[in-house]
Nucleic acid binder design. Structure first.
Lengths: 201, 201
DNA sequence: TAGATTGTTAATCGATTAACAATC
DNA sequence: TAGATTGTTAATCGATTAACAATC
């Protein structure tokens, strides 16, 4: 089985969202998916074809079957366990975001170094000492991490996560972190986003 | 003057960051820029050529001149004024991020609807009533907005911003907003990022 | 001159899209 | 059958890269 292109993978969540947000309809057309994702209908058909997912000519695609297929492809056919590192304003905001649960992700742990925060609850998750993070990760409590720490801590924390066997990292710290090829990373940088916007605005 | 490609624009902030973060060196090579941005050196040379920026063979590119050129291209040769809409955990985290100032952006206003928050200070900016936002925007107090509001408010607030003449919107609310073609928008969605990571992780 | 590095070309690669036969 | 919509091809478009002459 060949890999999906990066472009295709980046569109799958948009297709999934349309299906999940329109709970009732049995079928969905490439045209509808295209409109929701902001792409061309031929592009959608190509994407789903690459996925090995077949529709019915004259009818469309089975919405529940497509939902399951995309979830399986994305690896969220079972729920994923996520840890949030850093319980400052950003980490707290991310932890409180209830949409995560709806999309297949459970925040199972939150870590911080501040003794004043450790032990407090965010939702129903207790903030733990960051020192417990590596063993929890090694133990398989979670396999995805969201970095919401200061720039200075981002790389050291990343190194600890990698050593503990993390699979994926979403980095909100304002600095790029480096990892081995075995670990998937995405970086969200506020300044970069604003600079790109500034060009177009 | 033809437009830069989207791919080129998305790399300019990475080149700029390298130069800004290594304050002392007079020249920078395409090889160094490529390593920092994670791309091919030929790609860098093509990008800078598209920008109309010339280096010196055998030497490299003038770092200060390139910095100025990229800033000008991105529209941050003068500082940009940014408003943050929503003073919850996320908005507060974004407002407190001092890196913004270093990258050419000044947070000049923060708005919220919560009477308990209005009047409080974040850094040296006072949280204002959201009702004052449209007139402030029309008056030119800011021309970029960061949305850190709940999903249900994102589209209405966006509509108000558009009506008031906003140039660019960075949307952190977990929902896609629609705007006229005249307005630049970027959406940062936590669930989508995690779903893409989940595929690769 | 010798070494380094740009600027540009041509080739390649990857992604998008129009178009339409297939078929429900 | 008639209308709708997929699945796929071929064309096109956009972006990347190797290679190397130009030249500092």
């Amino acid at each position: 089985m060949s890999e999906l292109s990066r472009a295709t993978v980046s569109r799958l969540p948009r297709y999934l969202r349309l299906i999940e947000d329109s709970a009732d309809s049995r079928t969905v057309s490439s045209e509808a998916l295209a409109a929701a994702a902001g792409v061309n209908a031929a592009n959608v058909r190509r994407d789903l074809s690459d996925l090995g997912f077949q529709g019915t000519r004259g009818v469309g695609y089975s919405a529940p079957a497509l939902r399951d297929r995309i979830r399986r492809e994305l690896g969220i056919e079972r729920r994923r366990k996520v840890a949030i590192i850093g319980a400052g304003n950003l980490g707290t905001a991310l932890a409180r975001y209830s949409g995560l649960s709806k999309r297949g992700f459970d925040v199972v742990a939150i870590y911080d170094v501040d003794a004043g925060r450790i032990g407090q609850l965010i939702g129903d998750v207790k903030i733990q000492d960051l020192e417990e993070m590596p063993s929890d990760c090694s133990f398989g409590c979670f396999d995805m991490a969201i970095l919401a720490v200061p720039a200075s801590s981002a790389q050291p924390v990343t190194d600890d996560l990698v050593a503990a066997g993390i699979a994926s990292i979403l980095n909100f710290a304002p600095i790029r972190v480096t990892v081995p090829d075995t670990v998937a990373v995405r970086q969200v940088d506020l300044s970069t986003e604003l600079q790109i916007l500034s060009y177009y605005g």
